Simulated scan of single mutants.
Amino acid sequence: MKSDFVKMALILGLLSCVGPFAIDMYLPAMPAMAEDFGVSATKSQYTLVSFFIAFGVCQLFYGPAADMFGRKPPLYFGLAIFLLASLGCALSPTIEWLITMRFVQGVGAASVMSIPRAIIRDRYTGTDATRLMALVMLVISISPMLAPLVGSLLMNPFGWPIVFYAVAAATVVSLLLIRFALSETLPVAERVPVKISAMFAAFKVLFRDPIFMGMTLIGGMGTASFFSFLAIAAFLYTEYYGLTPTQFSLAFALNALGFFTSSQFAASLGERFGGVAVVKWAVNGFALTALVHLLLNISGVDNFVVLVTLLLLSNAFLGLIVPTTMVLSLDEHGPIAGTAAALGGTLQMVLGAIAIVIVSAVFDGSPFTLVSSIAVCGMSSVILFFLTLRRPAHPVNG
C-alpha cells in the first residue's frame, strides 16, 4: 500500500474524528451533567439535537465553499469556530447556554464532515476511493472506541467540563495537521465560480439524481439508527442495566468495533462483487438482524448480552453500508464533489437529528424504544435500496 495513501487516511481520519469526538467523549457525562443542571434526561438530550442540527445544515455551506475556495480555507474557518465553542461549552453556567454553545460547536464541526469526503473524491474513485474511505473510518474508530472511556476517566476527578477542554485541545492538533501535513487537493483552475447560482445549480443536479439521493438516504438510515443509540444509550445502560460510566464506555466501544471492523472489508468485497451487491446484501442483513432483535424483545427477552451482541451485528452490516454508499453517491459528481458530499452529509444528519427527537420523546427507560427504532431504520433501508436500483438512471460503478 502506498505511503501517501496511508498518510492521507491518517490525516483525513484524524480530522474527521473531531465531530464524533465531541459526541462520543461527551456521552458518559450526560447523566452527571443533567444532574448538575437539575434538568431531565430529555432536556439534556437537546444538547445533542442542537449539535446535530447545526452539524447537518451547515455542511450545505462548507461543501460549496470548498468547491469555490479550495478545501483548506473552509477547514480553518470551521475548526476555529469549533475551538471557541468548545471552550464556551466548558464554561456553560446553564443548560440553555450549553445547548446554544453545542449548536455553535456543530456549526464548526460541519467543516470536517463533508470536506474530507470531497478530498477523497479529488484523489480517487471506485474501489480505491472505497478503500481509502474505509481506512479513514478505521482511524475514526479511535473516537467511539476510546473517546467515551477517556471522557469517563477524565470527568471522574475533574467533572464534565473537562471533556470540552480535551476536545478543544484536539482541535488545536487538527489545525496544525491542516497547516503542515495536508496539501490542497483542488487546484485553482478547477474551482467553481463564487456564485450562489452555481451552488443552487449543483443542488438541482443532485436532487434530480436518484442514485445520489437513494445511496444518501440508505446511508442516512444507518445514521438515524446510530443516532437513536447515541440519544438514549447512556441512560439505558447506566440507569436500566446499572452500568457505571466506565462500563458504559467499554460496552459502547464493543458496539463500535463491529462497525469499524467490517468497514475494512468494504473495498475488497466491492472489488470482488461490486458496490451495488455489497449494499444489497448488507441492507438485507441489517434489516434481518434488527427485526430478529425486535421480535426477541417483544417476546420478553431482555438480556444485556443479547442486546450488545445484536447491536454489534447490526453495526457490522452498517460498516459495509456506510462507506460503500458514500462512494457510490459521489462517483458521478467529481466536479461538484464538495457540494455533493455536503448535501449528502446534511440529509443524513437531519435524519439523525429527527431520530434523536423522536426516540428522546418516546423513551420509557426500557430497550424497546432503541430496538424498535433500529428495526424501522433497517426496513426503510431495504425499501430505499429497491426503489433506488430498480432502474438506475445512470451506470453505478461496481
Rank of each mutant, 00 (worst) to 15 (best):
103 F>D: 04
84 L>Y: 15
135 L>A: 11
103 F>P: 00
110 A>P: 05
115 I>S: 02
95 I>C: 07
87 L>G: 04
117 R>I: 09
111 S>Q: 10
106 G>N: 04
82 F>E: 11
127 T>C: 13
116 P>I: 02
103 F>W: 03
133 M>G: 01
103 F>Y: 05
99 I>P: 01
86 S>W: 07
131 R>S: 03
103 F>G: 04
116 P>H: 03
80 A>S: 15
127 T>N: 15
125 T>G: 14
110 A>Y: 03
97 W>H: 06
125 T>M: 15
95 I>S: 07
131 R>E: 02
113 M>F: 10
93 P>G: 07
102 R>W: 06
80 A>E: 11
105 Q>T: 05
126 G>Q: 09
131 R>V: 00
87 L>N: 10
80 A>Y: 13
110 A>R: 03
92 S>T: 09
128 D>C: 03
124 Y>F: 15
125 T>A: 12
112 V>S: 14
130 T>D: 13
82 F>G: 09
108 G>I: 15
124 Y>P: 13
126 G>A: 10
92 S>R: 10
129 A>D: 06
132 L>Q: 04
93 P>E: 09
126 G>V: 11
135 L>S: 08
112 V>Y: 00
130 T>L: 00
131 R>C: 01
134 A>D: 05
92 S>F: 11
122 D>C: 10
86 S>H: 12
90 A>G: 10
135 L>E: 04
101 M>V: 02
127 T>H: 14
110 A>S: 12
105 Q>A: 07
87 L>P: 08
112 V>F: 06
125 T>Q: 14
120 I>K: 05
86 S>E: 07
93 P>N: 13
108 G>E: 03
117 R>L: 11
114 S>A: 14
120 I>E: 04
97 W>C: 01
112 V>D: 05
106 G>Y: 00
100 T>C: 07
115 I>Y: 01
131 R>M: 01
99 I>K: 02
86 S>I: 13
99 I>V: 13
84 L>A: 15
105 Q>N: 08
87 L>V: 14
127 T>G: 11
94 T>P: 00
101 M>A: 06
123 R>S: 13
124 Y>C: 02
92 S>Q: 07
108 G>D: 00
96 E>M: 10
81 I>A: 12
83 L>W: 15
134 A>N: 03
125 T>R: 12
133 M>V: 05
121 R>E: 09
102 R>E: 05
80 A>M: 15
118 A>K: 04
108 G>K: 09
82 F>D: 09
123 R>I: 14
97 W>I: 03
124 Y>W: 14
80 A>W: 13
117 R>Y: 08
103 F>R: 04
108 G>W: 12
128 D>S: 14
132 L>F: 02
104 V>K: 06
132 L>E: 02
98 L>H: 00
119 I>L: 02
115 I>Q: 02
86 S>T: 07
100 T>W: 06
